[in-house]
């Protein structure tokens, strides 16, 4: 089980704050592919993925129990 959290513009695009994928293991790239399939509006959005509160690379592996977050371009300050 992999938890996905959506923030800001991503939350509005997904229409939800979080959801759970029943996967044991996947790469960050595979997660993004899954998301674009599930929510075509994400295509073309500039997104980063955080795994367990740390920015992850596309080739990093996500394991069951990890918490992922979709991070649109940040605009704090």
């Amino acid at each position: 089980m992999i938890k996905i959290k959506y923030f800001a513009a991503a939350k509005e695009t997904a229409g939800k704050e979080e959801e759970v994928l029943k996967q044991k293991k996947m790469t960050v790239q595979q997660l993004l592919d899954w998301i674009e399939q599930a929510y075509p509006e994400f295509k073309g959005m500039s997104l980063q993925v955080a795994v367990n509160e740390e920015y992850a690379r596309r080739e990093d592996t996500i394991h069951s129990g990890d918490v992922c977050a979709l991070i649109p371009p940040v605009s704090g300050g």
């Binding site: 923030f7 940040v74 605009s75 704090g76």
Partner: peptide
Amino acid sequence: VPIWKKEIWENGEEWIG
């Protein structure tokens, strides 16, 4: 830092990225 700002104007709103 993962913080996002949405600007709300008189005639619309937008997440600033």
